[in-house]
Amino acid sequence: MNELPTLDLSRFAGPDRAAFLAALRRTAREIGFFYVTGHGVPDDLPGAVLDASRRFFALPEAEKLTVEMVHSPHFRGYNRPGWELTRGKPDWREQFDLAAERPALPRNGGLPAWARLQGPNQWPVSLPDFQNVMLRWQDEATALSIRLVQAFAAALEQPEDVFAPIYDDLPNQRIKIIRYPGRDRSEETQGVGAHKDSGFVTVLLQDRERGLEVETPDGWIEAPPRPGTFVINIGELLEMASSGYLKATMHRVVSPPAGSERLSVAFFLGAKLDATVPVLELPPHLAAEARGVTQDPLNPLFMEVGRNYLKSRIRSHPDVAKAHYADLLTPEELRATGPGSAY
């Protein structure tokens, strides 16, 4: 395999639904990544989202730092290059993280630690249209993601709404707006290190520059931008729920060459923070093909959604962890926290 397949989601509701589900099932089991067309997202929205992202990154650094993530116990806001870690190594990208706009929960109410993840976003005051564009993208990407989750359920011969109880009302929605600065090839080129995503699905909007790479049985392949499509990948939640039939796949981004930049906007749909991942009872012919959940000692997985998500946020953002979650860290972890550190 030297390129990702392309699937037309409009076929899910069409006369060739069965053929579409067979193709989706095969793709989900073998690679876990594909381009999607027929997604129903308005034509004008991807360009508006990318334009708003460029305007944010063009702001003076001092203004971007007023909404720096370290100010937010909910892991929302801006990160400078090198301030997020993947598998203990700094990622060379600047980014802005958003999530569902909800009120913060009380810290003294006896709630679990992951309840601190819920709360409001930080917004750049000099870009008054930025919030509206991003929340519109969140709505459209959520609707697309739910259709995809329903299609995955149908492909596994489950009711389409089998996962609805853990995403209805309070789904875990997150947007990551990312700029990868160009780097000389003599430097470290980890735009973002190899990793898997933790939720149901990821919807990735790419600009013009290449850089995304996906691990396949034949090695790493490129996933370059294709107009009119989004890149879709399966998260660990669906891998756990399907006992490994659906595949969460390692992927990475290589920094673009010096003198250029790469822009992308990722949307992640996850389950409610208080949910527990259900394990589906697959029909025998599918259960026989389930490979089990991948075990990675560097990334232990929990069936409790909030616990799993908080684990990854704390490991990725040690400065935020030190500022807002110090009570959860050991003395050794506290000493190790800081930009570019790992524990």
Rank of each mutant, 00 (worst) to 15 (best):
T6K: 03
L9C: 07
G14W: 07
G14H: 02
L21Y: 01
L21N: 05
L21V: 01
A22E: 14
A22Y: 06
R25S: 14
T27I: 10
T27E: 08
T37C: 11
D43Q: 13
A48H: 05
A48K: 15
V49A: 14
L50C: 10
L50W: 12
R54G: 11
F56M: 12
F57V: 11
A58S: 08
V67I: 15
M69N: 02
P73I: 05
G77P: 04
Y78F: 11
N79W: 13
N79L: 15
E84M: 11
G88W: 06
D91H: 00
R93E: 12
R93T: 14
Q95H: 09
Q95D: 06
F96P: 10
A99K: 15
N108Q: 14
L111R: 13
A115M: 10
Q118M: 13
Q122V: 04
Q122N: 04
P124F: 07
D129C: 05
F130I: 11
Q131Y: 09
Q131I: 06
V133E: 10
R136L: 13
R136Q: 14
Q138H: 03
A141C: 14
T142W: 14
L144W: 01
I146F: 02
L148W: 03
A151Y: 02
F152H: 11
F152V: 07
Q158L: 15
D161Y: 08
F163W: 09
F163V: 12
P165I: 06
Y167H: 14
Q173T: 11
P181C: 05
G182N: 03
R185L: 11
R185D: 15
E188P: 04
Q190N: 01
G193N: 05
D197G: 08
S198R: 14
V203H: 06
L205A: 13
L205H: 04
L205R: 08
Q206K: 11
G211C: 08
L212A: 12
E213F: 01
V214T: 05
D218M: 09
G219P: 04
G219N: 06
P224M: 10
R226V: 15
F230Q: 13
E236L: 08
E239W: 04
S242V: 04
S242W: 08
S243V: 00
A248H: 06
A248I: 06
R252G: 03
S255I: 00
E261F: 06
L263A: 07
L269F: 05
A275G: 02
V277D: 00
P283I: 08
A288H: 00
A288R: 14
E289P: 03
G292S: 05
P297L: 01
P300K: 03
M303T: 13
E304F: 05
K311I: 00
K311T: 09
R315F: 08
S316K: 09
P318I: 05
A321N: 01
A323T: 01
A323Q: 10
H324K: 03
D327A: 07
L328P: 04
L328C: 00
L328V: 02
T330A: 10
P331T: 12
